[in-house]
Nucleic acid binder design. Structure first.
Length: 589
DNA sequence: GAGTCCGCTCGG
DNA sequence: TATACCGAGCGGACTC
């Protein structure tokens, strides 16, 4: 460790960009309330330099945007343990009902509210960099704010923003929950960058094998693959239209009508209901055509490099706190292609998914002991059957989903009264969330993420319906719109809390994997077991074969830990189904 | 030719 | 056996 590193035993390193590179304000020591903190500022060309100088792996890095700062560290082979992603934290605190009275929440929108990403953190070249770095040290009695760097955009100073966020959290009713949420959200941002960096092992040859088997050889640009061309021919002859374009839903619909079939659309499930010789080849055509356009040869060219698929994850990209993705369609990898996800030689995949996550989350949110009891073991739906609430597992599933999504028709609506009798607390909880949304109010997840308010037009429609000269059409419209928003808030509390659980699960696992790597002496991220995929309630870890069993246990144990973080001693279980396999296709699903 | 909306199917 | 919730992304259809 350098001399500078030895001097800087910091709790926080606050990173900001400046004209000449990067400034890091390290704040440490001092009293609990942040006074008498020891503060040191270094200016270096690149963040990588600062991390090496500081050499403090246990520190927490504070920066505007993990997606803008962290990739350059990963490129240099550097991982950080913890961070605060100010942009993501701001988004949570701005909207949370728990911090509604804070200065942060009431401030007029500024740089931190912009949805745009922060400017690329990679500084321009330094033709005339004066020195490798400069260090200023000072004993101050200020709190943990950095000096405005002057070169950051007005209002964008990360030290100032950090203090504003801290103040909001301190003044809230549930500071502990919010701190946990922000830590988990920030850990998620680190994981997203790491997963993108490492990539999901993807065997191009296996993928191409699937395509050739189903579609035929790779066609020339603009040509239809042989299998599609032949199916198109069969559809045309069965419908007596030699020029029909099967890719045009409008044309297909007209042709079906001419053939005397009364279908309202060309949706697969609707076509499956009618009996006509054109239907089987048409359904097959649609299926293969989807494979070609979404995950065909073009997709391989665009997204698979050096045996890895590198999707761009967007933490917090969905209102509920779920992750979104950008490009590559990582949220919709078709099951047909899972076998192209193959572990490297000498490696394994640990594939895990949380069993019936959302009903278990609901049991915890509502403190419904009966539902928690039904969830003892790995099959909550079977537990509901065993309790006598419904007869079959299928009924239990459709009823639970209906309760969480707000189904009003069909079998699930019919089962609701029985579910409500067996699990009154759980059902009351989602009903309350629905009523809140119908009034236009907001609901809040377990750790403090609140739903957005409905838009202006929503309120206008509601207002119109309550005016004296409202027509019955106005009232119908307002009611249906209110119910729609109620279904959103009903689902929000469950989905957002489930997303929080998943973040805690992954953050805990990441910490354990880092410990394992240290014990084993693995130095690089990709030499050690590491996360390579995440989808709502499912993860994949790529692991050296000899560590795979240990990883599997950590995956299971981390799920228990996540449950305790969210629900404390309340006895709701979070079992995960975890398998050690060579390829993703071997895992159940 | 670019931008936007819609229909459809994939995932949880 | 479809319905309710959250998405991504493609291609066609339409507008400017």
């Amino acid at each position: 460790m350098s001399e500078a590193g030895a001097r800087i035993r910091a709790v926080l390193h606050i990173v900001s960009g400046s004209e000449n590179g990067v400034q890091v304000v390290s704040v440490g020591g001092g009293d609990d309330d942040g006074t008498n903190a020891d503060r040191t500022t270094i200016r270096v060309p690149k963040l990588v330099d600062a991390v090496q100088i500081v050499g403090d792996s246990a520190a927490r890095w504070v920066w505007s945007d993990t997606a803008a700062w962290y990739p350059q560290l990963l490129e240099a082979g550097i991982r950080v343990e913890r961070c605060v992603d100010l942009r993501l934290a701001h988004a949570i605190l701005k909207r949370s009902a728990l911090t509604a009275d804070s200065e942060l929440a009431r401030a007029t929108p500024d740089r931190w509210d912009s949805t745009a990403e922060f400017p690329a953190a990679e500084p321009a070249a330094f033709p005339d960099a004066p020195a490798l770095f400069e260090i200023e040290s000072s004993e101050t009695d200020e709190d943990a704010t950095g000096e405005p760097s002057g070169s950051e955009m007005a209002g964008a100073d990360p030290g100032v923003e950090l203090e504003r966020q801290e103040a909001a959290i301190r003044s809230s009713r549930e500071p502990g929950r919010l701190r946990l949420l922000i830590a988990a959200e920030s850990a998620g941002a680190l994981i997203a960058a790491e997963m993108r960096h490492a990539g999901l092992p993807w065997r191009k040859d296996v993928h191409e094998g699937v395509l050739e088997e189903l579609l035929g050889p790779r066609p020339e640009r603009g040509e239809r693959p042989a299998a599609l061309e032949s199916l198109a021919g069969r559809v045309r002859s069965e419908l007596g239209d030699s020029r029909l374009n099967p890719d045009s839903p409008a044309e297909v619909l007209r042709a079906l009508h001419r053939a005397g079939l009364s279908v309202a659309s060309t949706r697969s499930w609707e076509l499956k209901k009618v009996d006509h010789p054109a239907i089987p080849p048409l359904l097959e055509y649609k299926k293969l055509s989807r494979l070609l356009s979404a995950n065909g040869w073009f997709w391989i060219d665009a997204w698979v490099h050096d045996g890895r698929f590198h999707p761009d994850y967007v933490p917090g990209g969905v209102v509920s706190g779920r992750w979104a993705t950008r490009g590559g369609g990582a949220l919709q990898l078709p099951k047909q292609l899972r076998r192209a996800v193959v572990a490297d030689d000498g490696w394994k995949l640990v594939v895990a998914d949380a069993a019936q996550l959302e009903p278990r989350i609901l049991a915890g949110l509502s403190a419904d002991e009966a539902m928690a009891t039904a969830g003892r073991g790995t099959d909550l739906y079977q537990g509901i059957v065993d309790s006598g609430a419904v007869e079959t597992r299928a009924q239990a599933k459709v009823a639970m989903l209906g309760a969480m999504y707000g189904s009003t028709t069909g079998e699930s609506a019919l089962l609701m009264p029985r579910l409500a009798r067996a699990y009154p607390r759980a059902i009351r909880f989602v009903e309350n969330a629905a009523r809140t949304g119908e009034r236009g109010d907001i609901v809040t997840s377990r750790l403090g993420r609140s739903s957005p308010r409905p838009g202006e037009t929503w309120s206008e429609v509601q207002g119109l319906a309550s005016s004296p000269d409202a027509t019955s059409a106005d009232e119908r419209r307002a009611r249906s719109q209110a119910r729609e928003w109620g279904r959103f808030t009903r689902n929000f509390v469950v989905q957002a809390s489930a997303a929080e659980w998943a973040l805690c699960w992954m953050a805990e696992l990441r910490r354990r994997l880092a410990d394992l790597a240290e014990q084993r002496g693995y130095r690089r991220l990709q030499a050690a077991p590491h996360l390579v995929y995440f989808l709502h309630d499912e993860i994949i870890v790529h692991s050296p074969a000899r560590d795979a069993e240990a990883v599997r246990e950590h995956v299971v144990d981390s799920a228990h830990a996540a449950g305790r973080l969210l629900f404390g001693a309340f006895p709701v279980e979070f079992p995960v189904i975890a398998a050690v396999v060579d390829d993703y296709g071997q895992a159940k699903g």
